[in-house]
Amino acid sequence: MVSEHITSSGERPLTADEAMRTRERQFWLGLYEQMLTIRLFEEQVNELYMSAKMPGLAHLYSGEEAVAVGVCAALRRDDYITSTHRGHGHCLAKGAAVDRMFAELLGKQPGYCRGKGGSMHIADQESGNLGANAIVGGSAGIATGAALSCKRRGSGQVVVCFFGDGALGQGLLYEAMNMAALWQLPVIYVCENNLYNEYTPNRETTAGDMLARPRAFGIQTEEVDGQDVRAVYAAAVRLVERARRGEGPAYLHCNTYRFYGHHVGDIQRGYYRSREEEEWWQAQRDPLKLLSSWLREQGLVEERHFTEIERRARALIEAGVRFALEAPYPDPQEVTQHVYA
């Protein structure tokens, strides 16, 4: 978050209008910083892969940052999320620390899962993250069950179930949504529609109107520009607060785009999506650029704000990756630990 004091250096007090604008600036710059942190994190992950320092593969979230950040900004720390194979952004936005994330990606002992989970399985109870999932749609039941638990316990928590448009192919999602609607559970299904199921455009895999599916269960459904963090945030606040009041589940359809390949090794992509398409999204629909230009247009920020944020985010990523590279691997004895609780 941006450290800036509400009153300026002991001179005259801020006018009410100035104070409001400062608050507004701080809030949006905070989200900007989170999105930038995710972007830089993913660029670093790609480098770790390219330089053969990371085992296996990773699915980068770059381009989709506004969804995780906008939605998680509407959540309390004790609210739950479930995440996907493309989960780094969700984990970070919900409050995971960069250094322990990197450590997990490298299979190191201080990682969030002691190196046992890796990129696709980061879970962090402290920040309400019930876990990323490498089975497409695999967390629909978990999220809905957590929502039933919140309701039974009367905890006032809500649950966000993140999934990709590919998960719309899984029957489990519809079974879970049906029960969520029947039982009025505090769960928000957040679909990250990035147009592709792996290497296949979703127009070839998904019949009819996607939004009609949750609506058929009577679930409150909204569609939003997933590149515009302000729009995502506004919609998420509406749906989360509604769920918190006990008014039932919701579905938020976020139209977005992944800037990189399906995973870090997906370099030759011409056969399923064009260079022009990628360039258009990167040039016209980058969530970071959209927010920064809006902030500039509003006259809410000065260039030094961005410079400062970028410096801080880069330092955080650099320190995090150094921590992970230097961290030890787990003790071999851990291999048989944690099979049973």
């Binding site: 046992k116 990129s119 399985h121 787990p330 851990e334």
Partner: peptide, 16 residues
């Protein structure tokens, strides 16, 4: 295979 879910970390996975 060792009777454990397959761990991610190479140092553990190779033991399974």
């Amino acid at each position: 295979a060792l009777d454990v879910p397959v761990p991610f970390s190479p140092v553990l996975e190779d033991l399974t």
